[in-house]
């Protein structure tokens, strides 16, 4: 007969294990194009990622050729957009006020639109670098053998090379590179190198102005703002 103490210990262990296997909900996939797969935390196999899927702490996402995925974090709408042939692990520790987010990416291209974090930072770790961000919009191109490129669109990204500890701030209009041999460098962005965002411009506001002419020749215009 199992003692009450033993039962309690088993209960606590099961609780801890289950909480680590079935992580906290932290984000939701809002757009999926092409082959995008999801490996739920604690599972061995990949399944298809569908739009609307709720992502747990520790979930792994990978995109195939010509694929695209967008995920949004639930605390502040920080957005990650994954381009083709990319693989990330999404981790986030929930507190009452926010989610501390960390993305591990081994290879691929992503865009991070990070809202000003209420606490701490948003970290992206690659085999070569650690990028710390706070209120930033940037592209990150990760290549395990050639290193990382951060193309700053807005705000500041701190890029730390883990081989040498060298770090620099990448600002808007500049590209920071971090290479496996330990070097970091910054240069003006060649705009042709900025990846295409399939969702780009969808949220940009535009205007249509329609002119009306009355019977007496007076003109009035109707201005429509739309996104």
């Amino acid at each position: 007969m199992m003692s009450h103490k033993m039962k309690s210990i088993i209960f606590v262990i099961v609780l801890v294990i289950s909480s680590s296997l079935f992580g906290a909900k932290i984000a939701v996939a809002t757009k999926v194009n092409g082959t995008v797969e999801l490996q739920k935390v604690g599972e061995r196999d990949f399944g298809k990622l569908k739009p609307g899927t709720i992502l747990d702490d520790g979930d792994r996402i990978r995109t195939g050729s010509m694929a695209f995925a967008a995920i949004i974090f639930i605390d502040d709408k920080s957005t990650l957009k994954l381009k083709e042939n990319s693989e990330i692990v999404v981790t986030g520790k929930r507190s009452a006020a926010s989610i501390a987010k960390k993305i591990d990416i081994d290879e691929g291209t992503l865009r991070a639109i990070v809202t000003d974090q209420r606490k701490g930072e948003f970290i992206i770790q690659t085999p070569t670098s650690v990028a710390s961000v706070k209120g930033t919009d940037f592209w990150l191109i990760v290549n395990e053998s050639e290193g990382d490129q951060v193309l700053g669109l807005e705000g500041i990204v701190n890029l730390l090379n883990i081989e040498t500890g060298l770090n620099l701030d990448v600002t808007e209009g500049n590209t920071g590179t971090s290479t496996p041999d330990g070097q970091v460098n910054i240069d003006e962005t060649n705009t042709s190198n900025i990846p295409i965002d399939p969702e780009d411009d969808e949220s940009e506001e535009s205007q249509i102005r329609i002119y009306f002419e009355g019977p007496n020749g007076e003109q009035k215009s109707l201005l429509i703002n739309y996104r």
């Binding site: 939701v28 996939a29 609307g52 605390d75 709408k77 009452a96 989610i99 996104r227």
Partner: peptide, 26 residues
């Protein structure tokens, strides 16, 4: 927080995912 789709956005039929977060409204 309305996560998707953005208010006033134009989206394709296959991209319709309605998602909101109540994280800040416990």
């Amino acid at each position: 927080l309305v996560l998707s789709p953005e208010a006033g956005s134009f989206i394709r039929p296959e991209d319709v995912v309605i998602a909101v977060s109540t994280f800040n409204s416990p």
